[in-house]
Design a protein around this nucleic acid. Structure first.
Length: 499
RNA sequence: GUGCCCGUAGCUCAGUUGGUUAGAGCUUCCGCCUUUUAAGCGGAAGGUCGAAGGUUCGAAUCCUUCCGGGCACACCA
């Protein structure tokens, strides 16, 4: 007696029924997990060029996604990496024995078949099968999604399941695949853009003894042989600068950074950025390059105006360039360019803005900017004139202003996409700034930077005038694919453990 | 981290002023069916209602805690 005879359909019994089918298939002398199949054509090629293929013989392979049995003949849908195609399988064409095998197929099996291309009377391109092979037997039922007149029935839509079992999401929701294909396209266009400009792609350590280059809390780990703590990088900036010091004058790295912080629609603990550094140029030069980069990527996807999160973002017009203080004046109706900390505090009180008395001048400016300005930055806008206090790696403004550095951030649709400096290469100033950060750490600012003595020494050996940029690539991908959650552009977003 | 919402069959969902034995479609299994396509027709099976406590004669439904998820806010990129 086999489980097939039992009339249960819990998940467990379905699985054991399918295991019994494997036994029965083996008894027919068929290997349910063969080694290869000679595929001659992809489904999309056939369906899109029917006239050329009519009557011709093809061999295709893919996952069986639907079966419609009608006694001595049946229809099935097979999906390969390019799309689906219909099969017509009749006992007359494939023989009694193969038809018995076919009857043991389930949705989710991989199959290969050879047949001739035809159209059914309803006009659907179909392969009339005369050779049928099982390529891999499924034992765990995949959700069945049906579609009529463009309406999906029983679609696989539970977000938690889609993220946890991304492979099912990819099988069942074809548009998901498109997003990730675009992701790869954006990544390769990004490399192409910098390669063509003479940048050298490099790799720097993910495991770092001292983390730096950004203000964030790190993940910590331990190396057994060295007997020391290591950190997963929060940024690669300080290593890329060492390479500039070492004599490369254009470098970039596409890498994952890791930050032990909050998670939401635009933050995953590991995320992808590109950082690039070029010697002998300043942040104005980089502004032009970044603008060109975004326009190039948009163009490569045939995008000119992007509809994103309810906004229309124009990538053909020149990006706006605004001083932070002009923006404050526009949205706060006050010129705060000459304000000191005390005046900013009075402003906060006047506007009933909840500030922390521990904040320094730069932090107050930063928070005010987030509160009153950021939400207005829909079209691509370079914001300049950041306070020194929140930019410990940026060079002072060349006009002698002692509070402001040469830095820009690019905002699009209220979100930050790029951050860049004319890099600080004065070793004395750099040491003072990192020591100030260390002091802030001692006072309890967990995100303040750490003094990296090796980096400081490297700068002491001499760093050319340089500008560098970091761009959050996951966000670029979100923007260019219309996704508003970072989880939808990461194959495997971080999730909590299930029980 | 805080607030709001959600968790019922393999999938999608009904059922929540507390009241027999928790329903439907798809899926699965059996039978019929040679151009179907959410194939069809007939039959069957499938659930400790996210978990644990509590209130009650009686809980999917009310309460508490916990787990997981979504959204918003806060922080960051």
């Amino acid at each position: 007696m086999t489980n097939i005879d039992e009339k249960h359909s819990t998940l467990e019994t379905i699985i054991s029924q399918r295991k019994e089918k494997i036994k029965a298939i083996k008894e027919l002398g068929v290997n349910p997990y063969p080694y290869s199949y000679n595929v001659t054509h992809k489904n999309k090629l056939i369906t899109e060029n029917y006239d050329e293929f009519e009557g011709k013989e093809v061999a295709i392979a893919g996952r069986l996604m639907a079966i419609r049995k009608m006694g001595k003949a049946s229809f099935g849908n097979v999906t390969d990496s390019t799309g689906k195609i219909q099969l017509y399988i009749s006992k007359k064409d494939i023989g009694e024995e193969k038809y018995q095998l076919f009857k043991m197929f389930d949705i989710g099996d991989f199959i290969g078949c050879k047949g001739s291309v035809m159209k059914t009377r309803t006009g659907e391109t179909t392969i009339k099968v005369f050779e049928l092979e099982l390529l891999s037997k499924n034992i765990r039922p995949i959700p069945i999604v049906k579609e009529k007149d463009g309406v999906l029935h029983d679609s696989f839509s539970d977000k938690e399941q889609r993220y946890r079992k991304r492979y099912l999401d990819l099988i069942l929701n074809p548009e998901v695949k498109e997003t990730f294909v675009k992701r790869t396209k954006i990544m390769s266009e990004t490399r192409k853009f910098f390669d063509e400009k003479g940048y050298l792609e490099v790799e720097t350590p993910i495991l770092q003894p001292i983390y730096g280059g950004a203000n964030a809390r790190p993940f910590e780990t331990f190396h057994n042989t060295l007997g020391m703590n290591l950190f997963l990088r929060i940024a690669n900036e300080l290593y890329l600068k060492r390479l500039i010091i070492g004599g490369f004058d254009k470098v970039y790295e596409i890498c994952k950074n890791f930050r032990n912080e909050g998670m939401d629609k635009s933050h995953n603990p590991e995320f992808t950025v590109i950082e690039f550094y070029e010697a002998y140029v300043d942040f104005n030069y980089m502004m032009n390059l970044v603008e060109k980069y975004f326009k190039t990527i948009a163009k490569s996807l045939d995008l000119s105006v992007i509809e994103y999160d309810g906004n229309k973002i124009d990538f053909e017009k020149p990006f706006e360039r605004k001083s932070m203080f002009d923006l404050f004046e526009k949205y706060l109706k006050v010129d705060i360019s000459e304000f000191g900390k005390e005046e900013l505090i009075s402003l906060c009180e006047e506007r009933k803005f909840d500030y922390d008395p521990k904040w320094n001048y730069g932090q107050i400016i930063d928070k005010l900017f987030g509160e009153y300005v950021e939400d207005n930055l829909i079209q691509p806008t370079f914001v300049t004139d950041y306070p020194k206090a929140i930019s410990p790696l940026a060079k002072m403004r060349r006009d002698g202003n002692e509070k402001i550095v040469e830095r820009f951030e690019l905002f699009i649709g209220k979100q930050e996409y790029a951050n860049a400096f004319s890099e600080l290469n004065d070793p004395i100033d750099q040491r003072e700034r990192l020591e100030l950060q260390a002091k802030l750490r001692d006072e309890g600012d967990k995100e303040a930077q750490v003094v990296d003595e090796d980096f400081l020494q490297a700068v002491e050996y001499g760093m050319p005038p340089t500008s560098g940029v970091g761009i959050g690539l996951d966000r670029v991908i979100m923007l260019m694919t219309g996704q508003t959650s970072i989880k939808d552009v990461l194959f495997f977003p971080q999730m909590k453990k299930e029980n």
